[in-house]
Simulated scan of single mutants.
Amino acid sequence: MFDVGLKYYSRVVGIVSLAALLALSACGNREARGDYPAANENNCLPDVSLIDQHGSTVSLASLKGKPVLIDFIYTSCASTCPMLTAKMAAIAQKLGPALGADIRIVSISLDPEHDSPAELAKYAQSHGASETGWIFLTGPPAKIDQVLALFKLRRTRESDGSITHSIEAFLIGPDGHQIRQYNALDVSPDAVVADVDRARG
């Protein structure tokens, strides 16, 4: 009787230990919060020319060769955009001198009808986003919509003039294709910087 009970106890302990081991293994393989594999095979840096915050023409294709971190904002946004830009600013700070030298951040306007280069420059300055290597882009609405379509995104203008849009950001590899995508409000700057370091090789 004692021997039967001991065998049963040993079996239960073994099952519990195996379950705990599997749980730890699963935790070790989980994605970081808000950090996901890319689900888009499009070339996201096509030969489309936009205008930066300094009034210069920038072809997205010219950004190939280095990783690019892209998000979408607009200057009159009073809700999520300042939070998105604050998250990017935290990432920029952690990247340090690598920003500009080894990676660029690109913020594309969702309101090109109103976001002139001067407005983007003012937004960048007021949100601590004036670092070298961080580009704000606007351009003809049709071109902005073309770029959004490549990212499988769209913008919707509401009756009050605000724009409903995604809060995703994207890490683009040197070849112009997505490596990672993020819920930009949830992801930690450390997780993004780790992805960037891997993309830099």
Rank of each mutant, 00 (worst) to 15 (best):
39 A>V: 15
107 S>L: 09
28 G>D: 04
68 V>M: 02
131 E>Q: 08
152 K>C: 10
38 A>F: 07
166 S>T: 04
184 A>P: 05
177 H>A: 08
36 Y>A: 09
109 S>A: 01
108 I>V: 06
94 K>A: 07
32 A>G: 06
116 S>R: 13
140 P>A: 13
199 A>P: 12
85 T>G: 04
108 I>A: 00
175 D>A: 14
55 G>T: 07
167 I>C: 13
50 L>A: 10
55 G>E: 07
116 S>A: 12
62 S>N: 09
192 V>N: 13
62 S>F: 05
3 D>M: 11
34 G>W: 04
198 R>I: 11
86 A>P: 01
143 K>H: 12
174 P>H: 13
197 D>F: 09
74 Y>I: 00
31 E>T: 15
137 L>G: 10
42 N>G: 03
107 S>G: 12
17 S>F: 14
74 Y>S: 00
121 A>T: 08
36 Y>F: 15
93 Q>G: 09
172 I>R: 00
185 L>Y: 00
85 T>W: 01
186 D>S: 11
66 K>W: 03
8 Y>C: 14
84 L>A: 05
100 G>T: 02
10 S>W: 11
51 I>R: 05
117 P>R: 01
53 Q>G: 07
198 R>N: 08
122 K>V: 03
149 A>D: 03
194 A>E: 10
90 A>L: 00
187 V>G: 04
37 P>V: 07
123 Y>N: 02
160 D>R: 00
91 I>F: 11
102 D>M: 10
132 T>L: 13
7 K>A: 15
24 L>Y: 12
71 D>C: 12
59 S>Q: 09
26 A>N: 13
183 N>E: 09
84 L>S: 02
174 P>C: 14
132 T>W: 09
90 A>F: 00
